[in-house]
């Protein structure tokens, strides 16, 4: 039962909301507004003069073939990270759900990667996959697999996908486990009596009942892959070799702070902002209404 709290005056509720609103204001609305403003400006190379150019920055960015390639790359990266982070998570959750005794240590161990900083995760996987000293590279070499993320762009891409996904598995695991545990045990037993094999039970009962969790996580993982993998990439590949691991968020930073093209960088971040807003709308519209059985 939800209980409504009634405040005597107007002051207290506003005062209670103020810190949160202040934080959002300072860390979101102000920078977002600034980005919007900056995306309409063009600076000269020495930063001595600024000129208002309207939507010209957007036009330049969107018609740039390199930027389109980055979008395609980001899409591939995000889908791959989402799949690689969700499939192992659901498998682990299914297994952890069956553990009755000593379940806590398992869960704790599986959740730990989430607490690791992105840059550390990137460095960790960089070492593991390092062509000269990496453990994984060594065994891949023994298996006769050619592996060098430092010179092969697609190898580098898989390196950052694995590093990014690995961190997110823990997060997904928590949600999937909670989802599994909210399915009444009697449903599974009823399906068992109804003659459904374990595989069929998963696809016809468990998976459909997990669908709200799954849709929620797809959106969350997408947002994660889009915006929060900067640290991993920066630590592991710096967007290289070439531009082969440069996703949109990395390009924003690169174009702005390395290439010093602030106007176009701001335009790119506005585009990213539009994407995150769109994803949020999708989440609210679909996840909260349609996917409920």
């Amino acid at each position: 039962m939800e209980r409504k709290v009634v405040f005597p005056g107007m002051l207290l509720p506003y005062a209670l909301l103020a810190p949160q609103i202040l934080i959002i204001l300072v860390f979101f609305y102000v920078p977002a507004g600034q980005a919007l403003w900056m995306s309409t400006l063009l600076q000269d190379p020495l930063g001595l003069s600024v000129q208002f150019v309207g939507l010209e920055n957007f036009q330049t960015v969107l018609s740039d073939p390199a930027y389109r390639q980055t979008i395609a790359r980001t899409m591939f990266f995000s889908v791959a990270v989402t799949v690689c982070a969700m499939v192992p998570a659901v498998l682990l959750a299914l297994m952890a759900d069956r553990v009755v005794r000593g379940a806590m240590p398992y869960k704790t161990i599986l959740i730990i990667p989430y607490a690791i900083a992105p840059a550390v995760a990137g460095a960790l996987w960089l070492f593991l996959f390092n062509p000269s000293v990496g453990v994984v590279s060594y065994y891949m070499g023994r298996l006769g697999l050619d592996w060098n993320p430092k010179i092969d762009g697609s190898h580098a891409m898989w390196l950052i996908i694995i590093a990014s996904a690995w961190k997110q598995i823990a997060y997904n695991f928590v949600f999937f486990l909670a989802g599994l545990q909210s399915i009444p045990k009697s449903l599974i037993e009823a399906a068992q009596i109804d003659g459904a094999s374990p595989r069929r039970r998963f696809w016809t009962i468990i998976f459909p009942l997990l669908s709200p969790t799954t849709f929620f996580l797809i959106v969350v993982n997408f947002v994660y892959a889009f915006f929060e993998t900067f640290g991993v990439i920066h630590a592991a590949t710096q967007g290289g070799p070439g531009k082969s691991t440069e996703i949109m968020i990395y390009k924003v930073w690169y174009d702005g702070f390395i290439a010093q093209d602030l106007g176009r960088s701001a335009a790119q971040s506005v585009i990213l902002m539009a994407i995150v807003v769109a994803l949020t709308v999708v989440q609210f519209r679909f996840v909260e209404r349609k996917v409920h059985y």
Binding site: L187, E189, A190, A191, Q192, I193, G195, A196, I205, P208
Partner: peptide, 19 residues
């Protein structure tokens, strides 16, 4: 196995598949 015992069970919470 429960499926092969040729039984049917009615549960307290009905255990209907909600979807």
């Amino acid at each position: 196995e429960p499926a092969d015992r040729d039984i049917a069970m009615v549960f307290q919470n009905y255990a209907l598949y909600p979807h």
